[in-house]
Design a protein around this nucleic acid. Structure first.
Lengths: 336, 336
DNA sequence: CGGGGCAATGATATCGATATCAAGATATCG
DNA sequence: CGATATCTTGATATCGATATCATTGCCCCG
């Protein structure tokens, strides 16, 4: 047992190359390449024969060599904002669903998904990617700018903003705000409150839609700025409302957790949901659906968002014209 | 505007190579390579000069070329089980935290993280990876076997099982079970119930620990098999208990959601938590912590698990001896 | 003063795939 | 029947980096 050297290459696999296959098949490398690449330039028979041989010997294409020759990596880097402290992202389901959609679409298009957390711009592999997908726009868009400079095809998940040049895919946050406003109006609410972080691009859009729609009816909602999207933050928000003796009859919270916190605080204050106050959350989390009372909320389609993100980068890489797109959201009316 | 060809290469970047840099610096390619690679073979001065030049011109290493030459991809593939229907994984936070830890550790070691969903074994890029991390062992271990055949260094997240040969990193599920049992015993509970899926490797371990510890005190817990880990499932479990007139005074649920559902059902039945029945959940989710009453639960350290997974694959790739490892969990006693 | 030793750099081959162009084999047509 | 078009295959160059071995220059010491 003396062979356990420290840095031995570990996988001393057979490592069949095209040249080896060519020798085995009695043809040239290039014919093998063409046969495996489904090129119409080779006879169906030789193609079959070579493919069978490749299968039999467990031939594996060397991706690096191919990428080198073709001058592209067939890889899209996905950059995820993963600040564990943010209260969101790390714990929320959405990046995973998004990731699922992205991964599904890209791999089925023959692309690889390279996962990175922010601040790895120096990562050579990211620079080598054919395209970029940025998840978690962030409050200050600094990440967007950083990666924009790399000059790669890039698509961002989040909210569209006028001055930015990059392609954005996201939920139609503005419309969500409008929908919630309409709902509140239709059930006769006149004193709505918005809880969220207006510095966050997506939430700002929700707020705009909300405010604009209400303004059309002469109503001006109260904005309760909350940076954290936790349950505690929701509790706290409603308590502060109560302590300021503000009169309100509807709450649009920017996350289900905020909404649930708000409801808890309302109940503590002896208010009834939805009789005294209507509450709508955001994200349609499983917890919200199982909450007592079941939470009304806005659902966005993350899986589809991921697929769309992937399609857009691919199109960009392909040099096709691409436009930003906002996905419709749906207001789920439950008991609150 | 006639230049919008369909398949133009999109990024016709300057694409500086080492040869170009070499010409600019008046040295040979290999010297550039050495300078950028911090080789001690070049004078500190020339190294500085070349690095400055590289920075100035925005030189980017061609990863494919390097990987080709070095016969390794510097990439670890992470395979995530993402069945959207499973009720877990897709929606649970843990893969993301794990992913965060993995990504952090691997990228800081100069490796790239290739994200894949299951069933992409054919993916050439996965085959080209230097190592594999498998997230979501699955009930039948079929995925493990599939990837095992590829002969790559592989580490799996989940529960250790005697007959398997691969390296496993996971939480010490057995010990978690023991801890919860101890807790129940210490507060005088004699009729405990376990809610979970005993077919799932990790949960089976929890059950074993739980059962064994209780057996030492002559107590045999009731096993309530539940495949879904939803709140509804928890509600349903307790109701079935009640309808069968089973007497019980403690519940160990395999997820916080199950636990919360159980508590809800208990309250409906007019039982008091924790006076009549103690409840302990699993995973220490934010919702559980904010639940009323705040949920007692078992916390596993996912982030650290991710880091550990990464370190083990790297060690394996390096040819070092590696052993499976179970991370300690902690019982968080709150109000239930 | 001459040769061994060391430090810094370079020329060349190589990793494994594909593009390009050339060439042989076969078919088609006047 | 000869010539051109078509099909199939191959030889060679190439992508951009690094390993190996060779080379140059300089210092030191006998």
């Amino acid at each position: 047992m003396s062979s356990a050297k420290k840095k031995q290459p570990a996988a001393a696999q057979p490592g069949l190359t095209m040249a080896d296959l060519a020798k085995l098949a009695g043809v040239s490398k290039i014919t093998v390449s063409r046969a495996l690449g489904e090129s119409p330039l080779v006879t169906p028979e030789t193609r079959e024969r070579i493919q069978a041989l490749a299968r039999k010997h467990g031939y594996k294409l060397n991706v690096s060599a191919r990428n080198l020759r073709l001058r592209r990596s067939h890889t899209v880097a996905v950059i995820v904002e993963m600040r564990p402290s943010s209260g969101r992202t790390m714990w929320d389901p959405y990046p995973l669903s998004l990731l699922g959609g992205i991964s599904q679409e890209l791999t089925s298009a023959g692309y690889s998904v390279l996962l990175t957390t922010r601040h790895d711009a120096a990562n050579a592999a990211v620079q080598a990617a054919d395209g970029l997908i940025l998840l978690g726009q962030g409050v200050h868009q600094d990440a967007v700018k950083l990666y924009d400079r790399m000059g790669l095809p890039m698509v961002v998940w989040g909210a569209e903003s006028a001055q930015d040049s990059h392609i954005v895919v996201g939920s139609d946050n503005r419309h969500s705000g409008v929908s919630v406003a309409e709902r509140f109006l239709s059930i006769g609410r006149r004193h709505p409150v918005f809880i969220g972080n207006s510095d966050h691009p997506e939430m700002a859009q929700r707020l705009h839609g909300f405010v604009d729609e209400l303004a059309g009816h002469g109503i001006k909602p109260l904005l309760l700025q909350r940076v954290d999207w936790t349950l505690e933050s929701g509790v706290d928000a409603v308590r502060s409302l109560a302590s300021r003796k503000v009169h309100f009859d509807a709450i649009f919270a920017c996350s289900d957790l905020l909404a649930m916190g708000a409801i808890r605080a309302l109940v503590e204050l002896g208010l009834s949901v939805p009789n005294d106050v209507s509450v709508v959350g955001y994200d349609d989390t499983p917890h919200g659906a199982s909450f007592l009372p079941p939470l009304s909320t806005v659902r966005q389609n993350w899986q589809e968002g991921g697929v769309l993100l992937a399609r857009k980068v691919l199109a960009l890489i392909d040099g096709q014209p691409v436009a930003s797109q906002m996905l419709p959201t749906s207001l789920i009316v439950r008991a609150t």
